[in-house]
C-alpha cells in the first residue's frame, strides 16, 4: 500500500469522516459556483438564504432517511415511503377542507402513515415476504390510494395552521427544519435511550442468533416499519403544506430512492446490522446540498442527474476505501 493511500485510510478511519469530507466538498463546490451561498439574511421574520434552503428542502428526505435507517438496519428496505407521503398529504388536505380541526388532521395523517407502516411490517415480519417486494406493493398501490382520496386532483387548501407546518417559521427558523430536528432527536432517544437500537442491530446482523438470545425479530421489524411509515407521514404533511395542496401524483415521487441513498451515503450497510442516524442525516443533507447547488450553478437541466451520480459515486468510493481496509 502506498504512503498516500495509507494516509487516506488513516484519515477516513474515523467514523463519519468520509461523510463530513463529502459534505464539506459539496458545500465548497456550491460556494465556488455561487459565492453568495453562505449569505443569510432575514425576510419577513425568517432566515433566508441558500443554506437555509438546503436544510428546509432537505427536511423531507431527512425525515424519510430516519425511518429508512432503522428499516435497513433490520436487513429490510422500505420502497413505499414516497407513496406514504402522498397518502398522508392527501388525508391532511381533504380533512382540513372538510373543516376538521388541525390537531385531528395531523393525527389522522400520522395515523395513516402508521397504518401503512404496520401493513409493511406485517407483510415482512409475519408473512415473511421479501421486504423489497412487500413494500413495492404499497409503493404502487399507495399512490393509487392517494389518488382515490384526492379524486385525481390537486386538492388545495388555505388553512393557515396547516400551511405554517410547511412554510412557517419559529424563532426565525423554518418549521420543517425544526420538525426534522425534533424527529431526529426523538428517534435517537428511542433507539439509543432504550435497547431498541441494539435489538434492531442484532436482528439485522443475525436474525437467528438474536432469536436464541431472546430478541423477537417480528416485534423489532414491525416497529422499524411503523416508524418508517410515521416519518414518511410527517414528511408528507410538510410536502403538502409547502405547496398548499396535496399532489397525489407527484408528492414524494422517487424520494424513497433519495432516502435509501442518504442511508447508504451515511455508511449504513444495505445488508443490515450497524447503523448511524446522524450520518444518514448528513447523507440526506449532502444530497440536498447537491440538488440546490445544481440549481444555483446555472447548469443545463440535462446535466442534473449526471452531476448527482458523479458526486454520489465519489462519496461511496471514499467510503469503500475505509471499508476495504
Amino acid at each position: 500500500m502506498s504512503a498516500t493511500s495509507a494516509r487516506l485510510t488513516r484519515l477516513t478511519n474515523i467514523p463519519g469522516s468520509a461523510q463530513l469530507a463529502a459534505l464539506a466538498a459539496v458545500l465548497l463546490g456550491n460556494w465556488l459556483v455561487f459565492p453568495g451561498f453562505f449569505n443569510i439574511r432575514m425576510v419577513d421574520g425568517r432566515l433566508f438564504g441558500s443554506v437555509i434552503d438546503v436544510l428546509n428542502r432537505g427536511a423531507p428526505v431527512v425525515l424519510l432517511s430516519l425511518g429508512m435507517t432503522l428499516v435497513i438496519a433490520t436487513g429490510g428496505i422500505d420502497l413505499s415511503v414516497g407513496a406514504v407521503m402522498a397518502i398522508s398529504g392527501a388525508v391532511a388536505a381533504t380533512l382540513i377542507n372538510a373543516g376538521t380541526p388541525l390537531v385531528l388532521v395531523v393525527a389522522a395523517a400520522l395515523g395513516a402513515g402508521l397504518l401503512c407502516g404496520l401493513w409493511n411490517g406485517i407483510l415482512v415480519a409475519l408473512l415473511r415476504i421479501q421486504p423489497i417486494v412487500a413494500t413495492l406493493i404499497l409503493m404502487v398501490a399507495g399512490r393509487g390510494i392517494a389518488q382515490l382520496i384526492t379524486a385525481g386532483e390537486i386538492v388545495t387548501f388555505d388553512d393557515r395552521g396547516l400551511i405554517a407546518l410547511g412554510t412557517g417559521a419559529l424563532l426565525a427558523i423554518p418549521v420543517p427544519i425544526l420538525i426534522a430536528a425534533g424527529t431526529f432527536a426523538l428517534t435517537t432517544l428511542l433507539v439509543r435511550g432504550t435497547a431498541l437500537g441494539l435489538f434492531i442491530e442484532a436482528v439485522g446482523a443475525n436474525e437467528r442468533a438474536s432469536a436464541y438470545a431472546g430478541v423477537s425479530a417480528r416485534v423489532v421489524k414491525i416497529a422499524a416499519y411503523v416508524w418508517s411509515g410515521l416519518c414518511a407521514a410527517i414528511a408528507g404533511i410538510i410536502a403538502a403544506a409547502d405547496i398548499q395542496g396535496a399532489d397525489a401524483n407527484n408528492a414524494g415521487l422517487w424520494l424513497e430512492l433519495d432516502a435509501i441513498l442518504a442511508v447508504v451515503v451515511g455508511g449504513t450497510s444495505l445488508l443490515g446490522g450497524r447503523f448511524s442516524l446522524p450520518l444518514a442525516v448528513a447523507g440526506a443533507i449532502i444530497i440536498q446540498a447537491m440538488n440546490t447547488g445544481i440549481l444555483l450553478s446555472g447548469l443545463k437541466p440535462e446535466f442534473n442527474l449526471i452531476v448527482k451520480a458523479v458526486v454520489v459515486m465519489a462519496v461511496l468510493l471514499l467510503q469503500s476505501v475505509r471499508r476495504r481496509d
Binding site: 438564504g49 441558500s50 434552503d53 390537486i154 408528492a251 440546490t292 440549481l295 444555483l296
Partner: peptide
C-alpha cells in the same frame, strides 16, 4: 418537472442566485 413543488424549489434557488 411540471410539478408545483418542483417549480417552487427551482424558483427559490433562482431568486437567491
Amino acid at each position: 418537472d411540471f410539478t408545483r413543488s418542483g417549480g417552487k424549489t427551482v424558483m427559490e434557488s433562482f431568486i437567491k442566485a
